[in-house]
Structures are given as structure tokens and as C-alpha cells.
């Protein structure tokens, strides 16, 4: 495999996920955590993946990096990074990708850092693994990174242990570790969920700043549409392992074409809406071991039709780069065509 080409900077689409399927083979059966997901990520752009717990957004990210844990594995599809299929890479080959080309930060920075090593040691580990820097060069880079992610007294902080730092600072450490080797892609897996609201904004700002300065492509995974509204170029809405709707941020926010997306938008609190004006999505997430035959959202969907219960809707292009998998769109299209013929 030609690994050389992977180190060159590239414009346009750098990550193209095609029909990715990942399953967990549990004692009670196969759980299709990710079921035929496709999307493109362009260099230097921010892609948001939104969905509730168990929708498969994190598993999608872990599949890209192949850091799934037993009994999960990729069962189909491609992960094309600069044209090379990472899904076919061995763990040994993936080690060259992880942390060097594609990095990830996690939800809970407390548990994601090893409690028995200093943060400097843990950042330095990534530097030593992927660069030729040694000794004082590593130290200098650590201090440089800590400064870059906005940590005061970097010399002192580098020698501290995770438990001696605040939650926000720990997430900054995770970010410093992730960007240590100047990757092309940063995956942020619910980076602010475990943090205070005030810190959340700071971390998001930092990610945005770094994305801008370093030209990173960012995959922002979250269950909260509200927090990523301003920073994403494109958004994918996932439900039960499949993509419900994808498009530009404007498409998703102002022209949603999937009942689930509409439901998510209704449940975001804003300045104008008071508590009793928020409309929660009724019902509970689908049982992944007993997936319905049709659209997985149908049992909770306010506009579900007969066909929704029996057949999975195809992905339909609503506009330029805007796709949704919902029978309502098919219905609207058929109605429109019928109307045209009538005239």
C-alpha cells in the first residue's frame, strides 16, 4: 500500500466514507450500530454529526480510526482517506494514521487521560511516536502546544497529573495531544458534554480557532444541535445507525426534510422559546437488537404512514448536497408530479 501519498496535504474531499457498516456481535445477536453510512469531509471544513445516544455517531468515528472494542467490527463499506481505504488497513498500518493523520478527542477528559502519568508525558508520547523529535525538542513542542491551547504556565502544567487540573484544562490537554503531530482531521467526540456550560463555549471556541489556524478538517460529534449551529459547514443527522438527513448547516436548520431533524430542531431551547414551548420527541430510541422493518424512526414519527412501517426509505436528494431518507419527501414528490400532470 502506498503510504507516502498520505502525508501530502490535499485540497477538496480528504475523507470519504462509503456505505460504512459496523456491527457488535453480542451474545443476544448482531447489533448494527452503523448501517450503511456515507458522507464526505472536505479539507479545512467542519462536519457535524448529530444524533441521540446510541445513534451510531461515536461508533462511526471509532470505525474510521479502527479503535472499536471487542465485539465490534467493520462489516462493510469503505473509509477512503485521500483515496486509500483505511477499512482495509491492519492495526499496525492504522497506528501510522492515528494521532498523525487523524486524531480524536473524547467526551470525558478525566477518564480519557491516564491518571498515572503527567500530562506532559502523555502529550510527549504522541510526539515521540510520530515525529523525529527527541529530548528537549519534545519538551519545547509540549510547551508550545500547551500555549497554543491556551494553558497558562505551560512549563509547570506539563509536569502535573490529570487530577491536578480542572475539567476544561484537561480537555485542552486532550486537544493539545490530538494536534501534536499536525493531523489533517480532528474528530471531536462530544467534546463538551462532560464540561460546565461556561467551559463548553471556551472549548468550542478553541477548536474553531485551531481549525482556522491549522487548517484542520473537523468532525464534530454531538447530541446537541444548538451548540454546533455556528461552527459547522455541513451536518449529518443520524438515527439508529443510519443517516436520516445530511446537508449544509443552512439546509438542516432552515429547510429540514426529515421528521427526526424537525423534532430535534423543535427541542432546542432558544431565547424566544420558553420551557413549555419546547416539544420533545415522543417515545424512546429504537431497540437496536429488534430493528423495525421500515424506517427506524417510524414508531416515534408524528407523520408516519403505512409504508414507513414496512419499507426503509431511500436517500433522496432534496437540493444540491442535501439528502434525506424519509417517505414524506417521496410522497411530496409524487404529489407534485401528479399536480403538474393535472395542470
Amino acid at each position: 500500500m502506498n503510504m507516502q501519498g498520505l502525508h501530502e496535504k490535499k485540497e477538496g474531499v480528504i475523507l470519504s466514507v462509503r456505505n460504512l457498516s459496523t456491527s457488535f456481535f453480542t451474545g443476544s445477536g448482531e447489533v448494527k450500530a452503523v448501517n450503511g453510512v456515507s458522507f464526505d469531509l472536505e479539507a479545512g471544513k467542519v462536519l457535524g454529526i448529530v444524533g441521540e445516544s446510541g445513534s451510531g455517531k461515536s461508533v462511526t468515528a471509532y470505525s474510521i480510526l479502527q479503535i472499536l472494542t471487542h465485539p465490534g467490527r467493520i462489516v462493510g463499506g469503505q473509509v477512503l482517506y485521500k483515496g486509500v481505504d483505511l477499512a482495509k488497513f491492519s492495526q499496525r498500518q492504522m497506528r501510522e494514521i492515528r494521532g498523525e493523520q487523524i486524531s480524536i478527542i473524547f467526551q470525558d477528559p478525566m477518564t480519557s487521560l491516564n491518571p498515572t502519568y503527567t500530562v506532559g508525558n502523555q502529550i510527549g508520547e504522541a510526539i515521540r511516536l510520530h515525529t523525529s523529535r527527541r529530548g528537549s525538542e519534545v519538551r519545547d513542542r509540549i510547551v508550545e502546544l500547551l500555549t497554543l491551547v491556551g494553558i497558562n504556565e505551560p512549563q509547570k502544567r506539563a509536569d502535573q497529573y490529570p487530577h491536578e487540573l480542572s475539567g476544561g484544562m484537561r480537555q485542552r490537554i486532550m486537544i493539545a495531544m490530538a494536534i501534536a503531530c499536525e493531523p489533517d482531521i480532528l474528530i471531536a467526540d462530544e467534546p463538551t458534554t462532560a464540561l460546565d456550560v461556561t467551559i463548553q463555549a471556551q472549548i468550542l471556541e478553541l477548536i474553531q480557532k485551531l481549525q482556522d489556524e491549522l487548517g484542520l478538517a473537523v468532525i464534530m460529534i454531538t447530541h446537541d444541535l444548538g451548540i454546533i449551529a455556528d461552527m459547522c459547514d455541513d451536518i449529518i443527522v443520524m438515527y439508529a445507525g443510519s443517516i436520516a438527513e445530511r446537508g449544509s448547516a443552512d439546509d438542516i436548520f432552515y429547510n429540514p426534510h426529515h421528521e427526526y431533524t424537525k423534532g430535534l430542531l423543535h427541542s432546542i431551547p432558544t431565547m424566544e422559546k420558553t420551557d413549555d414551548m419546547l416539544i420533545p420527541i415522543a417515545g424512546s430510541p429504537v431497540d437496536m437488537l429488534a430493528m423495525p422493518a421500515g424506517c427506524p424512526f417510524a414508531p416515534r414519527c408524528p407523520s408516519a404512514m403505512k409504508v414507513c412501517m414496512t419499507d426503509m426509505p431511500e436517500e433522496l436528494e432534496i437540493g444540491d448536497g442535501h439528502f434525506a431518507s424519509c417517505w414524506m419527501n417521496v410522497k411530496d414528490m409524487v404529489m407534485a408530479e401528479a399536480g403538474e400532470q393535472h395542470e
Partner: peptide, 22 residues
Amino acid sequence: GQDYIRTARAKGVAGWLIVVKH
């Protein structure tokens, strides 16, 4: 099964080193 083992894997640390160091 801890999160920081996942972090080490995501960093590109080799399997045996994860066990021995982390």
C-alpha cells in the same frame, strides 16, 4: 476497558506498549 486505553490506541501506541506502559 478504561477510556485512557482508548486514548492511547487513538494516539497510535502499539498494543504491547499499551499493556506495559498504560
